[in-house]
């Protein structure tokens, strides 16, 4: 790392360290809020790592997440807790690779539909298996506190950022930028486009499954309909796009305001959350293409032009 890069990374490292101390100053309400934000930062940032450069919209988050919660639900009594997110990540990565191999050589519409249905598919199958075996939900009773969850998520977020930073400097990252611009050209300069996309898609798969495994103790009782709730996938998409996928910090800029807004709306008018989701979607498409990252770039460009003229 060069000196300049070190200086650039410094504020982010400082932010991370500050975030570590949140549980010592925040009350239960704000700690819970911070945990939710940390969760969405991991989900939205890892989502954007894949969807930003490739322009594929994945709605599979809920499926990976649900798989993760079930790993914890089934394994927390027999295995040490630290192993569970790792196992979940492995499973999530495998599931993502399988889905990617089937759908990523096809157009984006097929991918959206398939990932949207994936959570529902897994949910129906899990419910069916549970019915067959006479089970219903599962209790996850552990000694893990909200604080522990928050710190685990924070660590995971740091990992995701590190992965994003490394990919951005790697050949894979460069290949993905080329693919996002023109897939035909990408193939003709020697990029195995299908392989690159599948490889990258495993990252949100692993991250979301690990998040699910870490968060399971928070729910105490898990059942398929909550673990695989499709709403989660949409929340992640909207936060990532609201922030913008062009930069690593983009999703973070979307997560914070949207989580606060969501919290406000669920308390004031719980029936209007879907309307809010719809309106923000439309807002992004018509008013804020590129999210806050795009807005920031436009402001900077205008400022520079104004300064130059």
């Amino acid at each position: 790392m060069s000196g300049q890069e070190f200086l650039k990374a410094l504020p982010w490292v400082a932010l991370l360290i500050a975030a570590v101390f949140v549980p010592f100053v925040a009350g239960p309400y704000w700690l819970s809020m911070a945990t939710t934000m940390a969760m969405f930062v991991v989900l939205a940032t890892s989502w954007a790592l894949f969807s930003g450069p490739t322009h594929y919209i994945s709605l599979a988050t809920a499926a990976f997440f649900g798989v993760g919660t079930f790993v914890t639900g089934l394994g927390f009594q027999t295995l040490p807790f630290w192993m569970l997110p790792l196992i979940a990540a492995g499973l999530g990565g495998i599931l993502a690779a399988l889905v990617g191999m089937v759908t990523l050589r096809l157009s984006g519409v097929y991918f959206v539909i398939f990932t949207l249905g994936l959570a529902e598919l897994v949910r129906q199958v899990v419910t069916w298996v549970q019915n067959q075996t006479g089970q219903r939900g599962m209790y996850v009773l552990t000694s893990i506190t909200e604080r522990d969850i928050y710190w685990m998520l924070l660590g995971l977020a740091a990992l995701v950022y590190l992965a994003g930073w490394l990919i951005g400097r790697s050949k894979l990252g460069f290949a993905l930028r080329i693919i996002g611009n023109d897939e035909t050209v990408a193939r003709h300069v020697g990029i195995d486009t299908a392989l690159a996309k599948v490889a990258l898609f495993t990252i949100p798969g692993m991250a979301a499954a690990a998040v699910g495994a870490m968060l399971a103790p928070r729910y105490i009782y898990i059942e398929p309909s909550t673990a695989f709730a499709p709403l989660l996938s949409f929340q992640v998409v909207i936060m990532a796009l609201l922030g913008g996928t062009g930069r690593l910090w983009g999703p973070l800029a979307g997560v914070i305001p949207f989580t606060l807004l969501w919290e406000f709306i669920t308390r004031q008018a719980p029936n209007q959350t879907l309307l809010l989701l719809g309106v923000v979607f439309l807002l992004i498409v018509y008013v804020l293409p590129g999210g806050f990252v795009g807005l920031w770039a436009r402001i900077r460009r205008r400022f520079h032009q104004g300064g130059g003229a």
Binding site: V109, F281, L282, V285
Partner: peptide, 13 residues
């Protein structure tokens, strides 16, 4: 995709 998803949620709301 994004716009019609937006409409979809807004309509449900």
């Amino acid at each position: 995709i994004l716009a019609t998803f937006g409409m979809s949620f807004a309509l449900v709301g």
